[in-house]
């Protein structure tokens, strides 16, 4: 099953000052093009929240959460470089977690759109509870990772917010917790570069296996 759209979203958990994140700050630090900064679409830049978009990415920052996201596959590496560089510059920022998210958006037909819910969740168990059950949202979580890093795996399935009717979005979340050692925030940044290729390979593999198991 081939996705219509693939999004990348990097999410950092920590303590942030949203007001410093402004397109001009990115231009000043030579992290984006000047024209990109000039053409930025700024929603808000405030001490509690900063939300703006540039050609290559969307930024959504609160005091405890930093998200940079793009639906343009050509810019995935640039987004990674941005995330990496920002927290290299702000190396004093206390980071507690990193999430590398790939969102796959699929366009199904009406039959498969109904069927996928039944394959994910046994509808038989809802007999005499709901007369016409439908799956709105599925969240699957694994507490520990399958590799040497500390963190978890998570898969979330929703209707797609980017595709018109019969669109399904599957979010593969690769979550990393800070290690309990010195310089833990630097280690999270290191994971972003060390694990980068594997993150995509692993996500693609998980998605392929899921579709194989669903057998739609």
């Amino acid at each position: 099953m081939k996705p219509e759209i693939i999004e990348l979203s990097l999410v950092f958990i920590g303590d942030f000052n949203p007001s410093i994140f402004h397109p001009s700050w990115l231009v000043q630090n030579d992290l984006i093009k000047e024209t990109e900064g000039d053409n930025a679409d700024i929603n808000i830049v405030h001490k509690n929240a900063s939300k703006f978009s540039i050609d290559s990415a969307e930024f959504d920052i609160s005091r405890s959460r930093f998200q940079i996201k793009t639906a343009r596959e050509s810019y995935f590496e640039s987004v990674r470089d941005l995330g990496f560089s920002i927290f290299k510059i702000l190396n004093e920022t206390p980071l507690r977690g990193l999430g590398i998210n790939y969102n796959y958006h699929y366009k199904l037909n009406s039959k498969d759109y109904l069927e996928i819910g039944k394959r994910l969740v046994p509808f038989d168990n809802w007999e005499n509870v709901l007369s016409e059950p439908r799956v709105l949202h599925l969240d699957m979580w694994q507490e520990t990772r399958d590799d040497e890093y500390k963190g978890s795996h998570r898969v979330i399935i929703n209707p797609s917010d980017k595709l018109e009717k019969y669109g399904v979005k599957i979010n593969i979340n690769d979550h990393f917790d800070k290690e309990d050692s010195e310089n833990n925030e630097i280690k999270l940044i290191d994971i972003l570069s060390d694990y980068w290729i594997k993150a995509r390979t692993r996500s693609d593999e998980m998605i392929d296996n899921l579709w194989k198991n669903l057998d739609l």
Partner: peptide, 29 residues
């Protein structure tokens, strides 16, 4: 409240600690 944008009622959130799942910032929201 900009920090806590949605709830997942069926899940024990304490298990998840700091979530790093991707959230939507599209105009559809």
């Amino acid at each position: 409240d900009l920090e806590d944008e949605y709830e997942i009622p069926s899940l024990d959130r304490s298990l998840l600690k700091d979530e790093t799942i991707s959230e939507n910032s599209s105009p559809l929201k």
